[in-house]
Write a protein that binds this DNA or RNA. Sequence first.
DNA 1: TTCCAGCCCGAATTATATGCGGATCATGAA
DNA 2: TTCATGATCCGCATATAATTCGGGCTGGAA
Lengths: 157, 157
Amino acid sequence: MLDSVDAAIVRELQNDARISNKDLASKVNLAPSTCLERVRSLKARGVLRGFHADVDLGSLGRPLLAFIAVRIRPHTREVVDPFIAYTLKLPETVALSHVAGPDDFLVQVAVRDAAHLQRLLLDGFTSRREVAHLQTHLIFSHVHKWATEPYGPYGLE
Amino acid sequence: MLDSVDAAIVRELQNDARISNKDLASKVNLAPSTCLERVRSLKARGVLRGFHADVDLGSLGRPLLAFIAVRIRPHTREVVDPFIAYTLKLPETVALSHVAGPDDFLVQVAVRDAAHLQRLLLDGFTSRREVAHLQTHLIFSHVHKWATEPYGPYGLE
DNA sequence: TTCCAGCCCGAATTATATGCGGATCATGAA
DNA sequence: TTCATGATCCGCATATAATTCGGGCTGGAA
């Protein structure tokens, strides 16, 4: 379990993963050496899974975001697993969720423009036999909340 | 625009935002001092927006993920803006997308369990006057692809 | 009480980050 | 072609930071 110091470390690293160990230690009131051990422990325990740059997709030539809701038929492991592997290999794919409900997957994609999206849909999805239904949701704006508060012992909810 | 060295730097920082400047420089074949300047420039130009730890939500007591598709009525700025602000303040909210289509918003939430989700839906959403329709999609699995390849000059697509 | 595990700290040692002067190179004007 | 200009890069010197390690403190078990 996480104690309050772990929670503080996690929060700071969610806010700024490139903070120096020294500054991090100072923010959570630990000596740098101790802080370093804490961070290592959090990584070892799988709490901290990685550190990633948040990049402006427009600068990468992919300013348009969309969700693609996909229904797969048949919804069996033999079909689902390859579909997941395939989708994750598409350069346009940003995130993939396997969900419950009428739709089976929600694929978040980043593309250059509408024409690119159209090509992706036609060539990348509807052309596949297992894809039974598609619905596209253009994304006007998207906000990711990088910091998530712990729920339970250290949350008050 | 990004040249190929910028693209390489961005890719490395997407993979590991806590890489040392020295190691990063070595990976992209630059001197550390030059690499530092490149990274600063990428931040200044808004290409690198931030660096964030990827945290295991289960460790934070929120192992259950869901999308909540929300329809708002009326869909006017006077109603939409406060709804966005409200939703982003909920501790359960992880991401919020304003989308085109029958649904107006897709809210990604992280909760402790089904009961928590139910409470969130009833007290946090359906109780609000502007919320006309809700549909919840439990997320069985979710994969985020941290690295996105540039599209255009440096992509081959 | 004694031992031990779990945490924490500070000092010393390495390693890294950063500021700067100056070299190199592509470009475009004369 | 020649020269000025700006952009980019590098290496070195110095300031900072990361990391290791020995040891102290505390609470619980025996």
